[in-house]
Each structure stands twice: as C-alpha cells, then as structure tokens.
Design a protein around this nucleic acid. Structure first.
Lengths: 210, 210, 210, 210
DNA sequence: GATGAATGAGGGTTCATTCAT
DNA sequence: CATGAATGAACCCTCATTCAT
C-alpha cells in the first residue's frame, strides 16, 4: 500500500528541472553569472524560489549543471563528427569545424563556456578547465596517432594552441555584427586549415602548390 | 589660505594613485574582479575609502585603468621585440615569444587580461577586446606584409587564431604546477612555430623539405 | 469503497504518531527547537511531510505534545516516588531525588523542559510554566502539610526556590564532562538536603547537633 | 598632516553603538532572540543596516555583547552589595537580595540572561553559562570561607542550587501579574533566607528560637 | 586632500506549510 | 491515508558609494 512516485511525476520533475536549466543557460549566456539572479531564473521559469532550491543546491550548482550539459553536448558533437570520417586528418578537420559551428550556433553556450566560466574561479572554473582539457586530450591523442611525419613539439602544448585558436576565433566571430559575419562553416574551414598547418599536417598539397 | 598644488604634492598624488593601481592589479589578479572589494584594496594600500574615490570614479574605473596599463605595457613589449628583429618572419616569432614570456612572468596581469575581463561584460570587456584586437591587428598587418607567398585565408581570422593560441597556451602553462612547467621560453618557441606554420610561413625550410 | 478504520489501522496510526514523537524528542533535545526542522523529523521517522501534517497541526503542535508527554512522565515518577514513602519529609526527599535522577537519565527531555521551552515564548513557554507550576504546587502542598514547625515564608516562593535549585543543579550536572560526574543519586541526595534545609525542615538532628 | 579621528567622532561612535545595544537589549528581552530581527533593531535605532554591521559582526555578535554587558553589570552590583557588608553571612544575604532586585528591576536583562540565552546553544549559551558559573564560583568561595561549621556537601552543587533558586524565584515573580506581586525586596529576603538555610548557615538563632 | 562612518538596495537562501496525485 | 513536489514570505548579510568632519 506504499504509493510510488508515478512515472508521470518523474516526467514532470524532469521537465521542470530541464526548464530551469534551459532558462538558466539563456540568462547566464546573456547576462553572465553575476548579473543573473536566482529570482530572474525563477521568474522566467514560471516557478518559485522554493522549487529552484529543491532542484539545485544553490546558484553555483545550477551553473555547474549547465556547464556539464554543455560539455556533454560538445563531446557528443565531436564524437559524431569524428565517427563520420575515415582518415585521421579528416577527422581532425571535421572535429574543428564541428566545434566551431556548434559554438557559433549556440552563442549562449559558447559565452558560458569560453568567456564566463574561466573568470569565476573555484569549482566552476575547474569544471570548465576539465571540459577544455578533455577536448585538448582528444586532440593530443589524434596528434599522437598521426602515422606519418611525427608532429613537432610537445603534444599538450600544441593541443592547447589548437583549442585556443578555435575558441578565440569563435569569440571574434560572435562579436562581429551579425551583418558582417561570413558563413560559420567557411570560417570554420579556415580555422581548421590554420590548425592543421600548425601541427605540421596541413595542406601539404593545397598550400604548397598554390 | 589658498593652496597651490606644489610639485611635491603632485608627486605624492601620483605615488598614491600608483599604489592603488599596483595593489588593485595584484588583488584583481589573485581574487578576480568580484571577490576583490574596494575595502580590500584600500586596506592594502594603507589609505582610505575617501581617497580611493578621489582618485577613481568607481570600482569599474580602477579596473579599467589597470587594464589599460596592462595593454600599454604589452604593446611596449611587442614593439620592442619587433624592433630588435630585421626580418618579418623573425619579427613575428619574436612577438609571439615576447608575448608569451611577458604573460608567463606577470601572472596577475595575465589573469586579468585573459581570464577575468572577458567575463565582465560592458565597457570592461570592450576594453579587453580592444587590447586584444590591437594585437590581432598588428598580426594582421604583419601577415599582410609578408612579401612572398600570400598567406592563405582571411587575415583577421588567422590573427585571432594566432592570438588565441598564445593566450590559451599561456593559460595552460600557468595552470601547471610550477614544478611541472618547462621553461617559458621553450614553450614560447613551440607556440611561435605552431603559429607561423599556421599562417603558412613556418619552417619553410624545416618542414617543407623534410 | 467506504473505509472503516480497522483496529489494525488504528494501531499503525498510533505507532507512527509515537515514532514522530520519539524522533522529535530526540532531535529537539539534541538541536533545540529552531535548529530542528520538520524535514529532519520526517527523514528520521521514515515518513513524509504530508504524514507529519496529518498527525500534527504544525511544528509548534508536535513540540507541545512532546512537552506534555514529558510533563506526564515526570508527574508519574513523582507520584510513584512519593507513594513509596510514608513520612512527609521522606516523601519530599524522595520527590527531589527522583526528579533529579529522572532528568539526569533523560537528558533530551531535560534539555527540552529546562532549557529549550522557556525561551520559546507564547503557548510553548506557557505549557512549560504549567508543568513546572504543577511541580511547584506539589511542593507547596507538601510544605503546607508539614505538621510541625510552620515553614517560614511564602510557600509559593519557597516552592519555586526548591524547583529552581533542582533544575539548575541538573543543568550543571549535565554540562559536566561525563567523566567528571559523580553518581546522579549522590548529587540528588545533596540537592535534596539543600532544599529540605531551605524550607526549614532539613536535618534538624543532623546539622543542628554538629 | 594625518587627520585623526576627533574625540567628537569617537563619542558619536560610542553613542551609536550604545544605542544599538540598548535597543537590542529591549527587543531581545521582549521578543526573544529569534523573533527579534536585525531590521527591527535597525529601525528602532534610527540607523541603517550598514551601520549595524559596521558595529557588529552579525546578529549573534550583538546578542553576545548584550549578554556580556549584563554579566558585567551584575558582577558590579554583586561586588558593590558585598562590599557594603562586613560579615560573611551578611554579605551572602546582601548578594542574593541584590541579585534578585536587580533582575526584578531589569526584566529585559533578566529574560535574556535567564530564559533566552540558555536555549540558543553554541557560543551564546556558553557565554551565559560562563556568567552564571562566575556567580556560582563567588558563592562557592563565600561558602568555603565560612569560618565556623563546614558547609555540608559539594560546594559546587550547593552553589548551583543557590543560583538556581534565585533565578527561578525571579522568573516566577516576573511572571506574576504586576498587581499580584509583593515588593521585590521582601521576596528577595525570603529567597535569601531559603538559600542561607540551604547551605546550613541560615538563621540558627533567628529561626531556631522563634 | 584625507578620513572613515554611514547608507541601503539587493542578493542568496531557508523552511514551515499546502495540496494534487 | 501517504506522498513529496511546490510555494513564497522573510531573513541575514555584503559592499559600492557618499559626505560630514
């Protein structure tokens, strides 16, 4: 005679939690961590302070959850992009382009990951570094796996150059007035070329001949 | 009882202002913008709240001044590094290396410029973008000035890849435990090579021939 | 679908109510009224918020019930102690000792009755005063009933001195590190002597002759 | 040329601090710790939240200060009362009476010390125990100093009985409707007699002969 | 010019209580 | 009867900024 939590309730809980996360992502992306207040998130979520603190320990917690979600989505994107290519080099190119395009199409997520979280210090910045480090490690592995020509220099350093180039290029692109922006995939392709050349595997044929 | 501002007073004013700026730089670098409070700056400057607001309009103002100072110091460093080299390519390499080393040796300034200010939004983030953009434009000009082989792609994009690679590499390097760090100039050299290859001008002899 | 309350259900209800009361007594005794939250009581009772509010009107209500239970248990103890003695004086001595020992052996109850409830104000403090007053009245009656030598002074005042002495002595004893405590019954005997002397009936033979 | 804090400012600071303390004492005495809010204290002090937190670390802090002040005033009263008597026994009687009268005339202080603070737990309750313990120790010393007849039983226990009797009697007296109250000094005298008899030194001649 | 006491808006958070399931 | 998600009033506290001395 014990009443279980019905599936319906579980669904609603998940929906509400997701709503909080969605709203929070949007607001954190638009206003940043400090200028986004818990009451703001609550109001836009059509909910209440109490509910908010039922789902999240505190403001830091929901930001962390947002960040984790972003990290997971990006990893998924990267893995998918890589899986669709056979050759190592093409995989790297695809990864860069997908990363760029994902961030370009999700500016709130991009702002949170690239701009906002590093400045927060403590556990939040650590989380961001973790995400970024996991991307960097993917690159490191890929670099290490290139059969031909050994890549020059410390793979970890190269990987961070690689990631930094993508992030900074996205930031630049996002800051351009929408009217002046070239198509994201075009720019993404250029960034990819820059990076591939940077690790010594780029366009030997392409650039060399032109 | 009419006071003229004597030269002596002027000196003292300048000294006090500088003290505020130095302390603020250290604290902003260590704790970040939000966790650094005006009373903290005041206390470490052996001064008073009232004095603080005599020299600066508000907290944002002093942060902006700190940021400007950093920007100026960096430009000076860059110009000096460039002036010491004759060839274009060598100038670029020198610029990258100097940039990296400067940030590595001044972690507070690095944190303020690279990590803290972008997340602040508004005028402060704009200021940071201005500094970064001026560096990027230097790179753009240098790229455009390369006589031989036209560099591939949009110079602005490449410039931002370039700058992003340096900044992210520095960030990575600064986050390493001091014991694990390789000498800054070594890493700087690797970053320089990555970037030069990235813009298609790296190691023409080195990589191209092998 | 009309439900009769079966005997079995009644039992279960009573059991659950008692569980709430037991847990609440423990927690109120350990943490005090304000630091004990309804969710805490609920969690330790393996039940739910809803159930809690089915059995009790509100937090104040359950505290009141706890307090009443304590008062009843103490009255029972006192009556039992008194019933076992024939002489008036011995009854008083027995009452004091039993009171002391009961509180010493039930520190949670002691803390609730002696320390916590007076500070709560309103109905809860009134309830505590009621319990204490009933003890005091027992003492008053006993004092009034002493056949010989009329006790000096206002019986109500004496009664409260009497009760205050016991409570404060218990509090002192409870605050001692367990290692330093003398056996409760020994201390209780001393308190009893103090009080009996205080109302002018103590140890006429004992002290008077020495 | 350094501007010192003028004496005038110091005075004003002291005055404002005292105002906060006075108001807090009144409100804590009337409503208790939890129902007294910082905004309440601020409003009645004609001041501001910021000022409040300039003078006190937090709500607990101001309560502690209030408590300390009460403790100091009471010690002063006791010492004064004792100094005016020559004989040991008379000193004890005077101390009890003064204690009683002081608490009776300062009901807010009495409520804070006797009723409110023990239930607060943590540092505040510890502080109260400290005050009470110092009174108890005075009594202990006095008891130990009685030249004739050694007082029966553990002095520490007796001292707490003594103190408990006074406090509880005051509490009883304060709870009486003002109309029903006998003069405080009369009741105080009765309590004193109770206690002196309790420690075996009371009215050997007085009561015994009557 | 220098000082530091004073201000107060606004933030994050808790928790007793309700009610739909 | 049992459950636990939902509510929201209210609190404590911070800190950028002002201004009388």
């Amino acid at each position: 005679m014990v009443y279980r939590t019905t599936p319906k309730m579980e669904e609603r809980k998940a929906a509400r939690r997701r709503k909080f996360l969605d709203v929070a992502t949007r607001l954190f992306g638009e206003f940043g961590y400090h200028k986004t207040t818990v009451p703001m998130v609550v109001a836009e979520s059509d909910s209440s302070t109490g509910s908010f603190y039922f789902y999240f320990d505190n403001k830091e917690d929901i930001f962390a959850e947002v960040l984790k979600t972003i990290g997971e989505r990006m990893s998924a994107e990267l893995n998918e992009a890589i899986a669709q290519e056979a050759e190592r080099i093409e995989q790297m190119r695809a990864a860069i382009e997908r990363l760029f395009v994902f961030l370009a199409e999700n500016p709130a997520e991009a702002k949170i990951l690239v701009i906002e979280s590093p400045g927060l210090g403590g556990p939040l910045a650590a989380l961001q570094r973790g995400i970024l480090a996991s991307h960097a490690r993917s690159v490191e592995r890929a670099i290490a796996g290139l059969s031909e020509r050994p890549p020059p220099g410390d793979p970890a350093v190269l990987a961070h150059c690689w990631v930094g180039a993508v992030y900074e290029a996205v930031r630049y692109w996002l800051e351009l007035p929408a009217a002046e922006r070239r198509p994201a995939d075009e720019v993404a392709a250029e960034v990819a070329k820059f990076n591939l050349r940077g690790i010594g595997s780029g366009d030997a044929h392409g650039t060399g001949l032109s």
